[in-house]
Nucleic acid binder design. Structure first.
Length: 379
DNA sequence: CCACGGTGTACAAACGAACA
DNA sequence: TGTTCGTTTGTACACCGTGG
């Protein structure tokens, strides 16, 4: 098969510093940064100034600096920031589909990242990139490869959308069953979180180890902002029998992140697994009494209103914010009957089950995509 | 001009004084 | 002596800007 180097096909230009402007400004164009190569969640703008470096839809964008160097973007239009570079087609007669090359480069992200230059912060090596060999089958085959990979990608996107929809569902089920927490138009009695718990317990302040230890230990990054426990990136710790009693979290216990940056203080989730694990000192464990279901309390604190309450009460001192156990227990909460709370918890459990299935499927699809990519470009 | 070393900052982990 | 909890320290990363 014919092979050409990136430098035969493209002109590479590094981006320049771009001044961001407000979203409602006139005569604006999109300002692209590394984040924008991965998603379109926060779109930023800048002036339409000809001193900037532009990428059009048929250019390939690559992240040049930092841990994500080598990330590829395509079909995005705007001025690129200083940590990106753009690959523009050279004027020559080589027959190739830019989208195809973009996909090919995507399959080489790892390689580009591994061959970076720079002492502390990785930077793409221009030489390595320019000398990257691109296999070029016939135009027909290139086009087919693009269509195939796009199809798989769109399956992945659909799966992600389904998972996001389930999160919305959780919120709306909560609102429907219990009503707006702020207005309390179902007139539930108001109590304090402390009234609904048997006890609160801080986690262990023992140092966790990377590999060895009897128990996995949950740290702040294991509690997500949207109220889930993630078992990724765990550390481990040993506990004796006495410590195990205090510092293990069991299924149905509530976990609360008491120290973090102001926005992230108060991340709350229910531990959902049968196997108990340890938890660190910047988390507080709450065990509910017979008046409450922890899933309900967690959903309350994770509602828009709950987040607002937490944000307002976090004491922000030199960059770090805190909500201690007493303050947590003093938060007001409305109290529907326990039967209704349990019903809610059952619904959530069902939703979470579906979510797990979808997640598994997503991981599967992503793996398939990777191996497909490898096979396709090996020829 | 751009390669490459540096800076600022947000998040996370850990420390250790104050309390019981 | 163990627990609480505010603060310090560590780490990772996005982005910047200068000298060759």
């Amino acid at each position: 098969m014919k092979e050409l180097k990136i430098q035969d096909l493209f002109q590479i230009s590094k981006g320049k510093k771009v001044e961001q402007i407000a979203n409602d400004s006139k005569d604006k164009i999109r300002y692209i940064q590394i984040e924008d190569l991965r998603n379109n969640e926060t779109i930023k703008y800048c002036k339409n100034d000809n001193k900037y470096i532009y990428a059009s839809k048929d250019d390939i964008i690559i992240a040049w600096d930092g841990a994500n160097a080598g990330t590829i973007g395509y079909n995005i239009e705007g001025a690129i920031g200083s940590t990106l570079a753009v690959l523009k087609r050279k004027n020559n007669d080589f027959a190739f589909n830019t989208a195809y090359v973009a996909k090919f480069m995507q399959s080489k992200t790892r390689f580009l990242r591994d061959n970076c230059t720079g002492a502390t912060i990785p930077h793409i090596s221009r030489k390595v990139l320019e000398n990257l060999n691109v296999p070029l089958p016939s135009m027909d085959v290139q086009n087919k490869i693009v269509i195939l990979l796009d199809k798989v990608q769109s399956l992945i996107d659909k799966r992600k959308a389904q998972i996001a929809a389930l999160s919305d569902l959780t919120h709306s089920v909560f609102l429907e069953m219990f009503g707006d927490p702020h207005l309390n138009n179902k007139n539930w009695p108001i109590v304090k979180i402390g009234d609904l718990t048997i006890k609160s317990q801080y986690g262990t302040s023992k140092k966790a180890s990377e590999f060895t230890g009897k128990y996995p230990i949950l740290r702040m990054n294991n509690i997500s902002y949207d109220g889930r426990v993630s078992m990724e990136d765990l550390k481990y710790i040993d506990l004796d029998e006495k410590e195990a009693k205090k510092y293990l979290v069991h299924k149905g216990d509530l976990l609360f992140n008491r120290t973090n940056s102001k926005e992230l203080v108060g991340k709350t989730a229910v531990y959902p697994y049968d196997e108990p694990v340890a938890f660190a000192g910047y988390l507080i464990k709450l065990i509910p009494n017979d008046k409450a279901n922890s899933v309900f309390i967690s959903a309350y604190l994770n509602s828009l209103y709950g987040k607002k309450v937490l944000l307002n009460m976090a004491k922000n001192i030199v960059g770090m914010a805190n909500i201690n156990a007493e303050e947590l227990k003093s938060i007001n909460i409305y109290l529907p009957p326990i039967e209704l709370q349990n019903e809610f918890a059952n619904i959530i459990e069902n939703i979470e089950e579906k979510r797990n299935i979808l997640n598994q499927s997503l991981i599967q699809l992503e793996n398939n995509f990777q191996s497909l990519m490898q096979r396709v470009f090996r020829g």
